[in-house]
Design a protein around this nucleic acid. Structure first.
Lengths: 214, 214
DNA sequence: CCGGAGGCTGAACACCCGTTTAGCATCCTG
DNA sequence: CAGGATGCTAAACGGGTGTTCAGCCTCCGG
């Protein structure tokens, strides 16, 4: 969690970090009073700095988005050979609270969609590069294929408490899920699911002149 | 929504239906007072019948689960040739409120997992039958493959507001999502994603003696 | 040394929540 | 016809919520 510069230890930064952690684990229903208590601070201070609960939330959005953007920019092509930037960060325990926050934000109905587009952009970039390198098949619709993969990985995280073996401790949840799921996922990604292309052909015949996106 | 027998029009049933609809659209945070107002009834009546908000919720769980179970049992092998039972019900507008409730329930942290297992069982059955019929490839781990497919379809529904074109009306959301997604999904299901099996082989070599499930 | 600005707090406000209680009609049963 | 169960409600209770406000310290510049 902790940022690079230690001068960031102001109460303001501490509250922001606490809010991210709290909202990430308990959802945005978690109260201002609860966050303030966790940060060892008066509830009023939080309103003093950001005006309202929603103001703090927007500041957290901004911070998390910025943090991830800076981190993904730092990654070399070498690192990105096997997995997308977000997939790599997902495995980093230091980023677990941030990732949990992203999961909450992207599911929230009144989310502005910036987290979603960030995720999709990231995997689309990775897919395009992997396609160019000949590791991934070309597709009729790169955008939607990227979104589909985001749905799969994000969905697995959102449903982690069902996917992981019962009794898995909370901090091991995501690791347990990926452990269970990568095998069948790789199977699906290399061989597909169907034995022939009849359903796909039927679909393509049914809507012949379809374009990738309007 | 309306059940088969019209004698079910008691206030009790009306409240239950209203609660399912309300919680399905707004989440379980929706208040007892709001549900009572929608049903044209005093908030106290609701507590009178079910003891507590949580009691009503359990009754709704039971009702929805039972309704889907009865409906899937009615389906013939003919109908189940192309899609699983839940996938068929998902397209039925009459079941939209029920399906929305299921989506809320399965995401809720303190869900007992009955909705999840119902979904997984349904698609596992379908996959097994399709595999036996030679339409779907065999797999090393039927259980997890079924869960993976549930993650994909459920995830697409949970993230529908991002997947659907902007400005899609709420009642068209799911249809718009499936319209956008089926093409790339069929592509993935018939051809896979990777050009070769190097990643899969590397994975299988890395953990050679792995069993499907402990 | 003085004074103002900024970080910070305790107490209160208005509102919404789930729930309780007492009591009202109504209807079925003995 | 009496009487008790049943369906239902109005009003209130206690507690949690986001937010406001007056005022406290502390530190820094003139």
């Amino acid at each position: 969690m902790r940022s690079a510069d230690d001068a960031d230890l102001t109460a303001r930064a501490r509250i922001r970090d606490t809010a991210i952690r709290r909202w990430g684990t308990d959802g945005f229903g978690a109260s201002v009073r609860g966050i303030a208590a966790d940060a060892g601070v008066s509830p009023a201070l939080l309103l003093h700095h950001w005006g309202s609960k929603d103001g703090l939330r927007q500041a957290c959005d901004e911070y998390v988005l910025d943090r991830f953007a800076r981190e993904t920019d730092r990654m070399t092509a070498q690192e990105l050979a096997t997995a997308s930037a977000w997939a790599i960060l997902d495995r980093d325990p230091e980023f677990a609270p941030l990732a949990a926050y992203v999961r909450r934000a992207v599911t929230d109905e009144r989310s502005a969609g910036r987290f979603w587009t960030a995720l999709v952009d990231d995997t689309r970039r990775w897919l395009q590069q992997a396609t160019a390198a000949g590791r991934v098949l070309p597709t009729r619709d790169e955008e939607t294929r990227a979104e589909l993969l985001v749905v799969l990985s994000l969905g697995a995280q959102l449903l982690a408490h069902h996917l992981a073996p019962p009794g898995t401790p909370a901090d091991r949840l995501l690791a347990a899920v990926s452990e269970r799921v990568t095998g069948p996922a790789l199977e699906l990604f290399t061989h597909g699911l169907f034995t022939d292309d009849r359903l796909l052909q039927a679909y393509l015949d049914h809507r012949p002149g379809e374009e990738p996106r309007p």
